[in-house]
Amino acid sequence: MRPLLQVSGLTKAFKRGGRGVPAVQDVSFDIGPAETLALVGPSGSGKSTLARLVTRLIEPDGGSILFEGEDILRLKPKAMRAMRARLQIVFQDPGSAFNPRATVSRAIADSLKIHTGFSQGERRTRVRDLLERVRLNPDLAERSIHDLSGGQRQRVAIARAMASSPTLIVLDEAVSALDVSVRAEILHLLKRLQRETRVAYLFITHDLGVVRAIADRVAVLDDGRIVEHGSAQEIIATPQSPTAQALVAAVPRLRLQAQ
């Protein structure tokens, strides 16, 4: 089966104080349709840079990104904007990921306006559908994003990402800012949406507990490089690299299970 996303040799350095500091170095991985790949690493390992590189919010210094067989780094701006319908991203902080003036319906309808030929009435119906699919009351549509809780906002962010029927969603620490109980609900929602739509996830996180709950495969990132790669079970049960071992050890455990 041809992979949905194929990243190879991706490299990016940021200029700091006149010299280039490497953030991502020669990173390669691929994701198949309806698959969840977790990219795990401590802070500063280059995870978030990678999330923005893959969605081409920043341009890499080298490497290639094949998405649905096309090299997206070569796409002209207009074609890239059209491509974004199928390549979406959800950010970590549900507080800052929305225009402070936006209402729920505007946040979601913007994407519909760009990628579909729907009339205003059709868009309104579709927004309500999407809200129902992420288990939010459709009557929230006209509320300001700021009136919602963190978990609700993250559901709106997922609805916005789903609006254009993507085949891949990059989730950049999408549940890290949420309470444990809300986190569990959102992960449950993501899994259900994946079953329904066969969307693939690139799940970026520092928390192996979350990885265990959602990922098929894991790539462990440290210092901008992939240091370990394997199935989620393998890596959690028998981590090989010191980075993976530290990440496994750091997951909070209920006291009784540890003893």
Partner: peptide, 22 residues
């Protein structure tokens, strides 16, 4: 609290952890 949570809500928190932790 964890062995014998007296309240449904506490059990809910523990379940949530089991879903997203080790």
């Amino acid at each position: 609290i964890i062995f014998a949570p007296g309240q449904a809500y506490t059990r809910h928190l523990i379940e949530a952890h089991r879903a997203v932790g080790f």
